[in-house]
């Protein structure tokens, strides 16, 4: 049986490492695509991972101030995703309509 402190230290170091690896995987998907929607999904998950990382970092440094950072980040992070998704939605809608009218070549 390992001591409680030691267990927690191992856990938090492991968590930081695992989160970094996860971010690397998500970045691979972000670069790889293949469609724009895939990239938006990857970016959405990336914001959640960054949020988790900030919280893990707060535990790592034993500093509760970082939790305020996490709150502010959680407030604004999803706006980017929403904006990109709306943009995609409208862009494809418009493109489809132009294609129907044959105006796309102009």
């Amino acid at each position: 049986m390992i001591a409680a402190d030691q267990f927690l230290t191992i856990a938090i170091h492991g968590a930081l490492l695992v989160l970094l690896i996860s971010m690397a995987l998500v970045l691979w998907r972000l670069f790889r695509g293949p469609s724009a929607a895939d990239r938006v999904v990857a970016m959405d998950l990336l914001t959640v991972l960054v949020l988790a990382f900030v919280v893990a970092f707060a535990i790592y440094t034993r500093e509760t101030t970082y939790l305020d950072v996490a709150i502010a980040y959680a407030c604004i992070a999803f706006l980017g995703t929403i904006a990109l998704a709306r943009f995609l939605l409208r862009a494809y809608h418009r493109m489809w309509c132009y294609e129907q009218e044959g105006k796309l070549d102009e």
Partner: peptide
């Protein structure tokens, strides 16, 4: 706390792996 942190980061990893 340690177990929660382990399981939580594990699920984050699964999410990333799932995306790939």
């Amino acid at each position: 706390a340690g177990i929660l942190i382990w399981v939580g980061s594990g699920f984050c990893f699964v999410a990333a792996l799932g995306i790939v």
